[in-house]
Design a protein around this nucleic acid. Structure first.
Lengths: 133, 133
DNA sequence: GTTATTATTGATAATAGTTATCGTTCTTGG
DNA sequence: CCAAGAACGATAACTATTATCAATAATAAC
């Protein structure tokens, strides 16, 4: 159904080649740096099309939408408020409990998003070092 | 520290009087309907100030920020994709597991957001009725 | 209790992220 | 080859939010 044009292929490749959680702006810059000149509207449309086709997956983080590869198993995210890095995790017990809660509320769950905010290990180390000096 | 002006008091009252998850636009309309004429910038600034003071709490849902009372215990949300309603729930096991995951990753958690997406009981009932007719 | 200082307000301009418009280009089937 | 539809790029428009700035209100200093 979806037409995989050269532009969309470039977007898809870029996303598939890394574990990043891309937003449209960063992706545009990366594509430009890689030699692809793709209009920003085409990038937004491409992302939407690729998401609908299930070729990539999307999440809302704060005020912008992020896209990542869809060829990995479901997972949730640890978001560092200091460096902005995003770490992934999966916990079957949490998944189970969510299904349980949904059924309790007679709620037909078709997705979820769990973000854990805080400070990542890296940044914790740095802040300790910084305080010592 | 925060100055509770008449405008901010009106915003706070409006939020405290209901269990809604307000966005700035809806809140502005409600305040206007209630006879308060408060500039939209003042509403945004007031919301930020009240949030920083801990008098209300905020969450990101999709592309807009929502505010709700802070005088209730922590909870997460079931978001209906059909009618937009937001139901609240709390599950200690999920909370515990999150703390566990964070410590596993040496991640200093200082908050989280869990959104369960799907269709609420009300909308499920309606869709069944609709299909029968 | 006037004056100086500081914070807040409202109108509006500006910004960020995203979507819509529109004329042009690229496919693809007949 | 050519018509129909999809996608493209440039850019205008839109939504949510923040910044600017002059006017006003509250607070503190004398």
């Amino acid at each position: 159904m979806i037409k995989l044009t050269a532009q969309r292929q470039a977007i898809l490749d870029m996303i598939n080649q890394s574990n990043q959680h891309w937003d449209a702006e960063i992706l545009a810059r990366a594509l430009s740096d890689a030699g692809h000149s793709i209009g920003i509207a085409t990038i937004y449309r491409g992302l939407t099309a690729l998401e609908q086709a299930g070729l990539i997956q999307a999440m809302h983080l704060g005020d912008k939408k992020r896209y990542e590869r869809s060829d990995k198993a479901h997972h949730d995210h640890l978001v560092c408020g200091s460096c902005g890095s995003i770490e992934e995790f999966f916990d079957e017990q949490i998944e189970q409990r969510q299904r349980h809660v949904a059924s309790q509320y007679h709620f037909q769950m078709n997705g979820h998003q769990l973000l854990i905010f805080g400070i990542c290990q890296q940044c914790l180390k740095l802040s300790v070092k910084g305080e010592q000096s």
